[in-house]
Simulated assay, not measured.
Amino acid sequence: MRNMWWVVVVVAVVAVLATYLTWTAQRVDRLHARSAAAARSLDAHLLRRSAAAAVLAEERQAPELYAAARIALDAVPEEREAAENDLTRQLRTVPLSPEDPKDDAVISASRRLGLARQVHNDLAREAHAARRRRLVRVLLLTRRHDRPRFFDIDDPTVTASRPVAPVSPAPVVAPPPAAGVAG
């Protein structure tokens, strides 16, 4: 009877351990799949913003902005961050109005790009954390997956330029005379 309990305990421990290992392997796979999907989404948002910027540059006849947009559209992955940073700098020099549809397209594409970049980098950070776990490294659970890359660029969000009203100086008011002081 005693031997039977040991067998049951060993089988239960093996079942719990196998369940945990399966869960861990699936979690690593899911994190890498989500990170890859976020990278594809980020790429789509980068292309949308670059295309909207190119259309805006053609309309405004801004050759520097057009060149930056074309470079960003045609950039290879290794040069993408630098090209996107240059495009962001060019977009910040252009006055934008949310009432103009082409301007609004650039503004909304930039906002969405900022969110997509944040989601992508968060998922890449989670995948890196999972990769660093000792059990994951020992069992080589990440051997099928490439290491997710972070996409580090300046904040791509551009805002509408609003005309700033001139600030008039505050009127100078003489202090009231002090009570009880003869003058």
Rank of each mutant, 00 (worst) to 15 (best):
R2D: 12
N3Q: 13
N3L: 14
M4T: 14
M4G: 10
W6A: 10
V10S: 13
L17K: 00
Y20K: 09
T22K: 04
W23C: 05
R27L: 11
D29Y: 11
D29P: 08
R30S: 15
A36C: 08
H45P: 01
L47C: 07
R48G: 06
S50Q: 04
E58G: 10
E59Q: 09
E64Q: 14
A67E: 14
R70E: 14
A72G: 06
A72L: 06
E78Q: 09
E79W: 08
E79M: 13
R80T: 09
E81M: 13
A82T: 14
E84Y: 01
Q90S: 11
Q90C: 08
L91W: 09
P95A: 13
L96K: 04
D103T: 05
A105R: 05
V106S: 01
V106K: 01
S108G: 10
A109E: 02
S110Q: 00
S110W: 00
R111K: 11
Q118K: 15
V119Y: 10
H120E: 12
A124N: 02
R125D: 14
R125T: 13
A127Y: 10
A129L: 09
R131N: 06
R132D: 15
R133C: 01
L140C: 02
L141W: 11
D146C: 08
R147S: 07
F150C: 01
I153R: 05
I153E: 07
P163I: 09
P169G: 03
P169W: 07
P169E: 11
A170H: 07
V173Q: 02
A174R: 15
P176S: 08
A179T: 12
V181L: 13
V181F: 03
A182W: 11
A182Y: 03
